[in-house]
Design a binder for these strands. Sequence first.
RNA 1: GGUCCCGUGGUCAAGCGGUUAAGACACCACCCUUUCACGGUGGUAUCAUGGGUUCGAUUCCCAUCGGGACUACCA
Length: 480
Amino acid sequence: MKNYLSEKPDGYRIAPSPTGYVHLGTIAMALVNSYLARQNHGRFYLRIEDTDSKRYVADAVEKMMTTFNYFDVKFAETYVQSERAKIYQQYAEDLVKQGKAYYCFCTEDDLNQMRETQIKNGEPTGYYGKYAKCRHLSPDEVARRIAAGEPHVIRANFSYQDWGERITFTDAARGEIALLPQTNDPVIMKSNGLPPYNLAHVIDDTLMGTALVVRGEEWLISTAEHMQLCDLLGFPRLHYMHMPTINIEENGKKRKLSKRKDPQALVMNLIDAGYPKNAIIEYLLTIYNSDFEIWRTANPNAPLTDFQFSIQKVGTNNPLFDLPKFNDIAKNVWARQSHAEIVANFNAWNWQSLPNITPTIKTRIEKMLGVERGGERPRKDLIKFEDIADLYSYLWDEITVDGSTLDGQMLKNYAEIYDAADDKDTWWQKIKNLAPDKPTLRNLAAQIRLAVTGKTNTPDLWAICQILGNDIVKARLTRW
RNA sequence: GGUCCCGUGGUCAAGCGGUUAAGACACCACCCUUUCACGGUGGUAUCAUGGGUUCGAUUCCCAUCGGGACUACCA
């Protein structure tokens, strides 16, 4: 690894913790960071933040990588924090030697008790001032208790230096931020020998040369603590951009997208439902860069990589996940694809999950996907493959129609002249010939559509009849 | 409770002291089409409230209210 302490940082990264599932926000951060890396000729790397042993999930990294691969997210480097324990320990111990950190033997019970009395006294909670009991333990006592095998953590000593009134910095998306310095001595090394996020983040992003730490808004306040840690370590302070988080509305209140309650929070759920991956990417880009839609309208077929991501256009509001908007983007993404492309996507999707699917029906669906496609004005009726069962239900052999609304005799008359061999013009001409005036024609066309498909709006009827074949069409026309 | 962030139509938003306050989604109407769509045109609807500053505030300042985040040996 290069020594980025002495070289110019040129890295962008995502740092997920391995839960096994990739959250929409993680893909969003991956997107933003890969754009920034590409535009600034920097590296884009992955860091697995697995310092929480309680959260360990088997195969989590592999599962996440599958999702990243699916989205063509490529990393220049990959780091795993649990493999770097020695590095963090080294820095933490150096801090102790310098008096900038200390061993703390307080137990969970001690801490709970402390918090209770603080609350009772109306004081701020935390490990500070007179409550920071382990700050001034003698070296002998520390040595003795460690030798005795007492569990301990290392805490940074934030009383070591005067931080001034405020910790100020320029957030790349939000501008000047002035935070109160933190007075609590944070744990920087847990009793299991791994650091919590704070120390690992500061050391890794410094050593790995992160040019801009792009992370969620929820980290904004703790930036003061992270900068104080940089100062103690003698590192230059890192640069940050805090991104809005995607919310959802529930009972009139906003809350973060949750992977338990909101299926759209997990990108693979969206893919499993049959949304195109580019819809996810485009939606995320519209959320995180207000320029994107304008660009897309002006360049409907340009590759996404041509878009210039602009930090100035990153919002500061936390947007609501807008399903209708997302659906609209999905429709447009599918509509832009060629027949071959969409069929390939359909085949890659788990089409077996469609109810009562048979090889015959699958073939019909594949043909259906080509109807009214490829021209200047493609049809936009497909949002996600999952909807096919309903949207194209007439491709299955059974359809349900309220027969009372149909004129059976008229349909039988038409059935007699219907010929699957007719081209579209002939086919339409025959229908026209059956109707003396416009209202009748309108009605006849509607009836045929209803009888054949069970729906009032479908893609091109002639094409559908071609796909179904002579026998099925005639059978459906003559059963009323 | 404390600290920080945010507040333009139903949603996402442009705007950065003087604008008829863009655009997209959704919704409605009409046009195109002797069918369904696609497409086109138009419409409904927004600067949270109250004070300042200013010749003039959506824009700057303050307060209030509202929403969100953080306040762990989780990230």
